[in-house]
Design a protein around this nucleic acid. Structure first.
Length: 877
RNA sequence: GGGCGGUUAGCUCAGUGGUUAGAGCGCUUGCUUCACACGCAAGAGGUCACUGGUUCAAGUCCAGUACUGCCCACCA
């Protein structure tokens, strides 16, 4: 074993042990038909660049679960992968082409796709490498990419099945269109932003015999009037309903359009009359469907005005608005404008203002799928953690609308539909067809659109395991156990996995959905490259170590809540790893010199630390089962630092120096168990230290596959906990006095301890108390205090114990009386509150017996201590 | 417009009905004590946002209020 430096050096340990784990193949589960596996399919990061700290959180939380289950002996599969991320990746590569002074159109579809593949292969490598730096224990032998042949076939199979069931259709519908990306977007891919705009009141002349009459509409988008095909009023509008059936003249274009009645019009907004632009507004589109109105598309795909825009043809939509407003003003048709704030859709990916537009697209008829997805959660086949997201999920599913799945992109899964040039019909097929299925013509051409990225992601739980084939993986690992991801993609991804998983396999794709929060900066703001507040996980690992990053991301956080990360938290993680390192260093160095025969019988502090260890193991197990990983981690932290390091090691030192019973076997045993408890959270430092500890021959050769500690009830020892508690109290109180009276460490104090019970145990700990409290000599007497305090002696009243400290020249009787009087007052208040509770019949009769009993015991000890405090105070008068 | 969070120590956050509310960081004081100054010891610091209710018992459950953040929604 190499030397142990004073500080833990994470870098070396991390690369060494990760390679070791890979070599040993621990992350590849062995299929064992008699055992139920634990399975997580990793949310595939997009191949758009490097991992960010959100990925690090995802990976850490999943690794905690996976390592825990693996240590519990379950066949554990964590399957990694990456997502082709159609629009996002295409955008990234387009930006790079732009920087090179070229474009995808200049390259052409085929060359462009080649360029994206080049980018992807580099990116995949980076992502895998970065995941490994974090210590993820996933099965790299099963890594998948959404465009791998298997997943591709899953996509096509799903499409074909849904198509044959009538659940996929193509139609001319209004969709969100990004003029920059030049593709349709689903409703989810549109970001709504509240914007300060204006409401324009425009007069449309009515066609009447005498002329000079108008109907005034209010609109935020005057330029779209070029596409108007009606003006609508509410059928119940007394002010305006006499106009229904009349004709209006569209300004500028002079097109004559009808005035119609439709329920969609609000009475209280604007003028009560609405211009209807069916091709460019979702509500207007629905009105047009109801009323049989024609559609007029006024935009090119890039949102410049097309031939239907008459004089404005060629302008972009913003120029057009200005021009139209000027023209309306000149014609006296612009009545007024007023400020108006409303929300405007923007492309989730590139931020361009979305243009609603009617165009032919492919849709999933989602209703029947959603109904099953709702049922699976309602009847408990799937449980969402934290629970509050259940309602969010159900609410969204209940109001879901058909999903537009076609994208006018080049990068992605081509839609498996071939159009026949001869008969015009569609051939839908998993394998590329040679001829039209209807007329047999060879003159067929594949649909040029690709599928929404989330269509393939939605199959991820089973496409990664071999579906649609009946593979061994599929049979054994499906359905999976936990889907762990951020709450921000509950709709995008989780809901669709549930629907498509149920549809394809008939089973819920996972038992649990665990949602984590977002990682924010120290000010609580979302991290973004623009703001420059991103924390690069790899840099953080370089500075603080992977375990420190994992600690900072997960400790003290709760499911579904956002977490903040800062240098301070990273430091806390690093400090903890270092603390553990040094505790182990002490144990290991002691082993080199020390004796390893166990003490018989075990001294009280040994039984105490073992008892506490078991309690922590018990509590941690419960918390892990409840997905409370942050709290579980904190429990282990507290035990190691406060109880093991600050007390047990210190007591052990005393024993080693004074030749007391050898503490080494317990020292080693508790450390070894603590390392196993901590391993899922901080895998590297625990493995590094575990490997350095002596092990009996039959243990596994890595902590990765060592058993996770469980509570052994036989080792719980409340008696030892009580005695050790008293010792800790005595030492603390004496140290307190020393600090309070500024007694230098060089000056030793005598201590006389009177113990009403447990005197024999305390007497055995005289050397411990002497060393830890810097007191000498310490004598322990049985029973009540038999000496009166004076101005030379200070008395401490503890539960069941009194400590007398002869302190010549430091005790000020007035100060001492005041101190005691304060203590008496506090003790009276405390005892009083318990007594009044016990005097309450309602409490005694209604509270559970053990709670009442606990209160009685508390009252007895509180009263007893109060009396001793009072008598002490009396003796000082 | 609807929904969901948050409000606990100076800061960032835990706290899963049981009564003297915790941690990390920061602060004060004292320590280079032979595992660790990335440390040790001692301490200060909280009407748990507010109002009402349920309960023997409320930081914890319920209702409302205020502030704050987020999500959803066809706000011409």
């Amino acid at each position: 074993m190499p030397e142990m430096p004073k500080a833990y050096e994470p870098g070396k340990a991390e690369s060494r042990w990760y390679s070791f784990w890979l070599e040993k193949g621990y992350f590849t589960p062995r299929i064992d038909p008699v055992r139920k596996p634990f399975v997580i399919i990793m949310p595939p990061p997009n191949v758009t660049g490097e991992l960010h700290v959100g990925h690090a959180l995802t990976a850490t939380v999943e690794d905690i679960m996976v390592r825990w289950h693996r240590m519990m002996g379950e066949p554990t599969l964590w399957l990694p992968g990456v997502d082709h991320a159609g629009i996002a990746t295409q955008w990234v590569v387009e930006q790079r082409l732009l920087a090179e002074g070229t474009s995808r159109h200049a390259l052409g579809r085929e060359k462009f796709i080649e360029r994206v593949w080049e980018w992807v292969s580099r990116c995949r490598g980076t992502i895998a490498q970065q995941h490994q730096r974090l210590g993820v224990s996933c099965d790299w032998s099963r890594e998948r990419f959404t465009l791998d042949p298997g997943p591709c076939r899953a996509v096509r199979t799903t499409f074909v099945n849904l198509y044959r069931k009538g659940l996929i259709y193509r139609g001319e519908r209004i969709i969100n269109w990004c003029p920059r990306c030049q593709t349709a977007l689903s409703d989810l891919e549109v970001q709504h932003k509240e914007m300060e705009g204006r409401l324009y009141y425009i007069r449309y002349p009515l066609v009447t015999q005498d002329g000079g009459q108008f109907i005034t509409v209010a609109t935020t988008r005057p330029e779209t009037l070029l596409g108007d095909t009606a003006v609508a009023v509410n059928p119940g509008d007394g002010r305006l309903k006499h106009l229904v059936g009349k004709k209006a003249v569209l300004p500028v274009l002079k097109r004559v359009i009808p005035v119609i009645a439709d329920e969609a019009v609000e009475l209280s907004f604007g003028t009560g009359a609405v211009k209807i632009t069916p091709a460019h507004d979702p509500v207007d589109f629905e009105v047009s469907q109801r009323q049989g109105l024609p559609l007029v598309n006024i935009f090119h795909p890039d949102a410049t005005m097309n031939e239907n825009a008459g004089p404005y043809q060629g302008m972009d939509r913003f120029q057009c608005r200005k021009a139209i407003l000027a023209d309306l003003e000149r014609e006296g048709l612009l009545v007024k404008t007023e400020p108006h704030s409303h929300s405007v859709g923007h492309c989730d990916r590139c931020g361009t203002m979305v243009e609603p537009r009617v165009s032919p697209q492919w849709f999933v008829r989602i209703g029947p799928l959603a109904a099953k997805g709702i049922q699976a959660v309602v009847d408990g086949r799937i449980t969402i953690v934290p629970e509050r997201f259940t309602k969010v999920y159900l609410n969204w599913m209940e109001n879901i609308r058909d999903w537009c799945i076609s994208r006018q992109l080049w990068w992605g899964h081509r839609i498996p539909v071939w159009h026949c040039r001869k008969c015009g019909k569609e051939t839908v097929s998993v394998d590329d067809p040679a001829s039209c299925a209807h007329c047999g013509s060879g003159d067929i051409v594949q649909d040029s659109d690709v599928l929404d990225t989330w269509f393939s992601s939605g199959l991820w739980t089973h496409s990664t395991l071999g579906w649609p084939d009946d593979t061994e993986d599929m049979r054994y690992f499906y359905p999976t156990t936990v889907m762990e991801t951020g709450y921000d993609i509950l709709f995008f991804w989780v809901a669709r996995m549930i629907m498509l998983g149920l549809e394809n396999t008939g089973e819920a794709p996972f038992r649990w959905v665990y949602l984590h929060g977002l990682v924010r900066d120290e000010k609580g703001e979302k991290m973004s490259k623009v703001k420059g507040n991103v924390l690069n996980p790899i840099e953080a690992i370089g500075t603080y170590g992977a375990d420190a990053l994992r600690f900072a991301l997960t400790t003290g956080s709760t499911p579904g809540n956002d977490t903040k990360i800062s240098a301070q938290r990273l430091e806390a993680g690093r400090n903890f790893a270092n603390k553990l390192w040094n505790a182990a260093r002490f144990v290991i160095m002691s082993l080199e010199a020390g004796e390893v025969a166990p003490a018989v019988p075990l001294p009280v502090e040994d039984r105490w630390v073992i008892s506490r260890l078991n309690r922590v193991a018990d509590r941690v197990g419960q918390l892990m089962r409840d997905f409370q990983f942050g709290e579980a981690e904190r429990q282990v932290y507290d035990f190691i630092w406060d109880e093991y390091c600050d007390w047990y090691i210190e007591v052990a030192k005393v024993r080693m120096r004074s030749g007391g019973p050898p503490p080494l076997p317990v020292l080693v045993r508790v450390l070894e168990t603590s390392l196993r408890l901590l391993h899922p959270f901080m895998p590297f430092v625990t493995e590094e230290l575990w490997q350095r500890l002596p092990r009996e021959g039959r243990q596994p050769d890595s902590i990765v596959v060592a058993p996770y500690p469980a509570c052994d009830e036989k080792e719980l020892d409340t008696g030892a906990e009580r005695v050790m508690g008293t010792i800790i109290e005595i030492v603390r109180s004496i140290r307190n006095i020393r600090a309070q009276f500024r007694i230098p460490l060089e000056r030793w104090m005598e201590a006389r301890i009177y113990a009403a019970e447990g005197q024999a145990e305390l007497a055995r700990h005289v050397p411990t108390i002497e060393t830890l409290a810097r007191t000498r000599p310490v004598s322990v007497f049985p029973g009540e205090r038999r000496e009166a305090p004076d101005k030379e002696t200070l008395a401490l009243v503890l539960p069941g114990v009194e400590v007398l400290l002869p302190l010549k020249g430091v005790v000020d009787l007035d100060v001492e009386r005041k101190r005691l009087a304060d203590e008496v007052a506090a003790a009276e208040k405390f005892a009083g509150s318990i007594r009044s509770r016990l005097d309450d019949d309602a409490f005694c009769s209604r509270a559970p017996a053990e709670v009442v009993e606990k209160e009685r015991e508390k009252l007895i000890s509180a009263t007893e201590r109060l009396e001793r405090l009072r008598s002490l105070l009396a003796q000082l008068q």
